[in-house]
Design a protein around this nucleic acid. Structure first.
Lengths: 228, 228
DNA sequence: AAAATCCAGTTTGCATGCAAATCATGGAGG
DNA sequence: CCTCCATGATTTGCATGCAAACTGGATTTT
């Protein structure tokens, strides 16, 4: 008897509030609902999240180490600004990380994993065909994240996600031109082919180029904001 | 008048206690004074640091996002364990980061920067000649850090330092054998030569190999702890 | 008029107190 | 003897209160 009850016991302990706060605040930031440079007013966010200042402050500290917010001693925290220079640096790093991920994924990913990526790839192509930019970004992100995940290197995955979050807003500005979007799709085709063939050297080169192109695209947008 | 007074005004505000706590706690952890897996007792650390629990808890959250400690909901935090698998993964990532750093440093480092690295290189050789392991580690670390710093990519530098800290204990186990130590010195000679020649392709390859060798060395030690 | 000073109002940083969860120890039952 | 459960002690998580620091604008000084 009481199997269900005993099984639930380890789960009834509720999730700490500061974890909840971290997720909600991160969501607000990466979605751009709080403009970069804005001060995070503790009291305001408290009432918004329905928690006290203590767990909220702990959440802010977590996000600070992630690089999403910047701590100003005695002046609280502000949403980290996404400066063009920093985005460029971040994408350069992500480029080599993804190249490594591709290399490892060729060795470590299972056929099932490859199938999953292939499925996402076609979903992405569908979004591209429809001109659904939001949907495209979603699947594009998913593909890149899965690829890194299936590298089998957990440290790499965690780091990549961290960097990705810190430039998420900027990435949304990347493939703005139709030309660049089409080109990115061709690149993705090649990436998938190399992955399927488990050609690690080729995949590595393709991913590196892909990120370099994305970098150039993002920089172009960031350095001339009026062009949007 | 009152130049000194007005200049000091912005500085009299004392450093927040949680920042102090972060530094002291990080020091304890990376130096291995607190064994991996140990629970961080808040009350204990409070009296040790002379601060209240609130700033201490915030410090722990910062270190958690850095990866030095692991948060267990409702059970506080423990010092992150350095498992062989995780060290291997981390070194693999550091390898590509350093390769990128070398590539960038060839382009961006000034001659003064190169001179500084060269000086550190000779200091390291001196330590090697004396058989001073601790001194050798110190200068070896300095060289690698400076190289990454002089890449000019701040994101890369921050990430590299973070990863380096998280496996610091393990790195001390790396060059245990005389043979590996001598080999590492030869590799460093080549690295310096490539950097001086600003041969980015060669430097990239050398650094990548260097880390791969270090990885193999560390793994060998970690997987057979009795062999020490 | 421009710059420096001063003074509320607001916000952050920190200490403390309390409730919930976890841990440890001992005893009952098999 | 081992397992399971109960219960007190410890520890974590959170809310609140207070002091220090910052902010912005009015006042004074040059």
């Amino acid at each position: 008897m009481a199997d269900i009850a005993t099984l639930q016991v380890p789960q009834i302990t509720r999730r700490p509030l500061h974890e909840e706060a971290v997720d909600r605040l991160r969501e607000l930031i990466v979605q751009g609902r709080i403009a970069p440079g804005t001060r995070l007013n503790e009291r305001l966010l408290c009432v918004q999240f329905g928690v006290s200042r203590t767990p909220l402050r702990e959440a802010i500290k977590l996000l600070a180490a992630e690089g999403l917010v910047q701590l100003l001693p005695n002046r609280g925290a502000i949403v980290a600004k996404v400066e063009a220079a920093r985005v460029a640096e971040t994408l350069a790093v992500m480029g080599v990380l993804e190249a490594l991920a591709g290399e490892l994924a060729c060795r470590n990913a299972t056929d099932a994993h490859l199938g999953e990526i292939r499925a996402l790839h076609y979903e992405m192509l569908a979004m591209h065909a429809r001109g659904d930019l939001a949907g495209y970004f979603k699947f594009n992100q998913a593909i890149h994240l899965k690829l890194v995940k299936y590298s089998g290197n957990a440290v790499l995955y965690q780091l990549y996600r961290q960097l990705n979050a810190s430039v998420r807003q900027a990435r949304y500005m990347a493939n703005l031109t139709k030309k660049r979007w089409d080109e990115a799709m061709r690149e993705h085709d090649e990436i998938l082919a190399a992955l399927d063939a488990r050609d690690s050297a080729r995949l590595k080169a393709l991913l590196s180029d892909h990120l370099t192109h994305k970098l150039a695209s993002v920089i172009g947008v960031l350095s001339s904001p009026a062009a949007a």
